[in-house]
Write a protein that binds this DNA or RNA. Structure first.
Lengths: 239, 239
DNA sequence: AAGTGGTCTAGACCACCGT
DNA sequence: CGGTGGTCTAGACCACTTT
């Protein structure tokens, strides 16, 4: 039975993950009840249960007693809660608004291609935007997306818009962001950055370099964020 | 049976957590096998198992097949891996060394007392140290500890020493750090900070304000770290 | 009332470790 | 070899949601 020496529940979890990643069960879908899955996959209900617990821990599904098990959909709340780590000086979260300054497509340079696991010169979309919290522009952001995963990607320029690209990635391009890694540094604002954030050149800025991965573990977004930390903080939990 | 409507396994986990927090089972101790715990607590082995899984997820215990279940001891590796988020530009971790500049005891001011959940004026230990990575001093740190939890706390001054206070907290004071929250900002180095880190005044520094909690969830350490991010980054994972 | 996930139990067997 | 945790199964019953 066990070709590899991996536990049955791990294999089961992998099968279910693949179905979700491939879109066989789209976001928001109700998936079959535990006993049905167990019968179909030829394992005991307890084993299915353990696999589903793993999927829930990774937030690929949501289980609700009495209703069923659903493939997780990226809501604005979820995206903000898990992937937006900026808080005010009291630790409170606020929903940002954003304005797109630029959105164009072109070949990636070597560093950018490497970060996204692409060949040098592969087409990428470049987005630059300002995000405001409580009306104050405090975030400047440059985003890089592989054109292969986001065909015909466009955003309206210079218009205030509700935030959260991750909801849009999922809804319009079938790309679900599951995980991200960030590296933070303190830098001095360049004249261009300063002008866009109404700061002075040389002002301290928190630079956040993110790579975001989809459900299958492939890197699908490279993002650099510059945060004015006079009135805000980046919040992290360690355990 | 169920006074509160909390699941049996959650109550079981709580009981076991309390035993560890109170030191009935000290760090490194072997705890009884599952069937014995089940018999003693009057629950089924499966329920004990679920409770132990929770303790393992919170890293309070370590389970080793064939050997038994042990109360987790803070090793240097564990402390560094979970609570030291600094990496070099390639993403590699290095073990820091540290030199204590100052270590004294006095009353806390209002802000400090509040952060540690103490009354204003309560006695606290203050530590200032420099940490070096690969021989370069890149971290300046101020640490605040409630004297009530750390009686007779002292550190040798101005001597290179192996790092990791959390190992020392646990070994010498019975305080196990289980979790921490951090808030990050970019600031301009003060003349004093610049001098200690061989930087120029106004240089960008990453400021990391941490509150660390013990197993019982009580705040037991307030720490502010300033990191020179010319050659290092703060690493975070989001999921 | 029917159907779902959540809890709890009981036990078999396997893999690993130390003696 | 005996003892431990790891896996897997089978099923009873509860709590919640919808019809």
């Amino acid at each position: 039975m066990n070709l590899a020496r991996r536990p049955l529940y791990a294999q089961t979890e992998e099968v279910l993950t693949r179905r979700i990643a491939e879109g066989a069960w789209p976001p928001g879908a109700l998936i079959p009840p535990e006993p049905e899955l167990a019968a179909e996959l030829g394992v005991s209900p307890g084993t299915v249960r353990k696999a589903l617990a793993g999927l829930e821990r990774r937030r690929l599904i949501e289980r609700r007693q009495g209703r069923g098990t659903f493939v997780a959909a990226h809501t604005s709340e979820r995206a903000l809660f898990h992937f937006f780590r900026v808080v005010d000086l009291n630790g409170a979260q606020h929903a940002p608004t954003s304005m797109v300054l630029d959105c164009r497509t072109g070949p990636a340079d070597a560093e950018q291609a490497a970060a996204l696991g692409l060949a040098e010169g592969a087409e990428v979309h470049r987005i630059e935007r300002i995000r405001a919290l409580q009306g104050q522009p405090v975030i400047l952001e440059r985003i890089l997306l592989p054109a292969a995963r986001f065909p015909d990607f466009t955003l309206p320029l210079m218009r205030e818009m509700e935030d959260e690209l991750y909801v849009l990635y999922q809804r319009d391009h079938g790309v679900t962001i599951a995980r991200a890694e960030e590296r933070l540094a303190a830098i001095a604002a360049s004249p261009e950055q300063a002008a866009k954030l109404t700061l002075w050149p040389g002002a301290p800025l928190l630079e956040i370099a993110r790579i975001a991965f989809d459900v299958a573990g492939q890197p699908v977004e490279r993002r650099v964020t510059w945060l004015d930390t006079r009135m805000h903080r980046y919040h992290a939990e360690l355990d």
